[in-house]
Simulated scan of single mutants.
Amino acid sequence: MQTSLDFQYIIELLPILIKYLGVTMEMAFWGFFFALIIAVAMAIVRVFKLPVANQLASLFISFFRGTPLLVQLFLLYYGLPQLLPIFSGMNAFSAAVLGLSLHFSAYMAESIRAAILGIDKSQMEACLSIGMTRLQAMRRIILPQASRVATPSLMNYFIDMIKSTSLAFTLGVAEIMAKAQMEAASTFKFFESFLAVALIYWVVVMFFTRIQHLLEIRLNKAYS
């Protein structure tokens, strides 16, 4: 039985895993893109308290914040095609992106809503006084200011989404975690395989954490 850590195996495995990092990042970027669109729409609905839509948005947020992401992925990939046959052709990658988008949009919507509510109400009143509609004021004045406030939390959700893509291997997506699982099963070097994938995630997260820090400095420069 092997009791020592095989550093040579980790070094050899890293380039193999990195080849699959593109799939992981593609899932994260697409998931964040669609999540942001859904989140902004729900945040606006919640801020304006639109009848029916507000209740539906609240139900959506409650469900996707109150259930595990893994369960949601299984519901979307295995359960949704049974309920709606139109989704029977959905592949695992699309299901993973859809699951990530819906799950994180529920959290992001609340962050964006809080950022919007944090903007002084007098600014909306000033916009309405010069003839803007509420949506025009939201798009031109309120959202640009709210984006500065919401950026740190949104970047945190993006970083969390990168890590959450590791669950996509349960659907059969050939991403970095899936490859690590296959390598571990074939060599029985489970610790080394999962340590290698952990190191890659760690480096990626540190990279985007640095970008987040620089972005915050840039956005707050005018307010310093």
Rank of each mutant, 00 (worst) to 15 (best):
P152Q: 11
Q123W: 08
T151M: 15
F158V: 04
K179L: 13
A150W: 08
A126I: 10
I112R: 10
I112F: 07
Q181N: 13
I116D: 01
M124W: 07
K189H: 12
A178F: 14
R134A: 12
T170F: 05
P152I: 12
S105V: 02
L135A: 12
I176N: 09
R113Y: 08
G131M: 11
Y107G: 10
A126N: 05
S122E: 11
S164A: 15
I130C: 06
T151Y: 15
E125F: 07
I119E: 09
Q145G: 05
K163I: 12
S111T: 01
Y107P: 00
E183N: 10
M177Y: 10
S122G: 15
F188E: 02
F158Q: 05
D160N: 14
V173S: 02
S105F: 04
R134F: 06
I162H: 02
A146T: 08
V173G: 09
A137R: 02
L128P: 00
R139W: 00
T165W: 09
I116M: 13
K189M: 14
A109N: 08
S122A: 13
Q145I: 04
A185Y: 06
S164Y: 06
A184P: 13
M124A: 07
L135Q: 05
S147E: 04
I159K: 06
C127R: 02
T133C: 03
M177V: 01
E125W: 13
R113T: 03
I141M: 14
E175H: 13
K179T: 06
A150C: 09
A185C: 01
E175P: 10
S166A: 14
R140C: 01
L167Y: 08
S153D: 08
I141R: 05
I159A: 10
Y107S: 10
A178N: 14
A184V: 09
S153H: 01
I116F: 15
Q181G: 08
A174C: 00
M155F: 14
A114I: 01
K179A: 11
A106N: 10
E183R: 13
M182L: 13
N156P: 03
R113G: 04
I176L: 15
L154C: 08
T187L: 04
I176F: 13
T170C: 07
A185Q: 13
I130D: 05
R134C: 05
A137E: 01
S153Y: 02
E125A: 15
I162D: 02
M182I: 12
M161V: 04
G118L: 06
I130N: 06
K179P: 00
T170D: 01
L171F: 02
E175A: 07
E175V: 07
L171Y: 04
M155W: 14
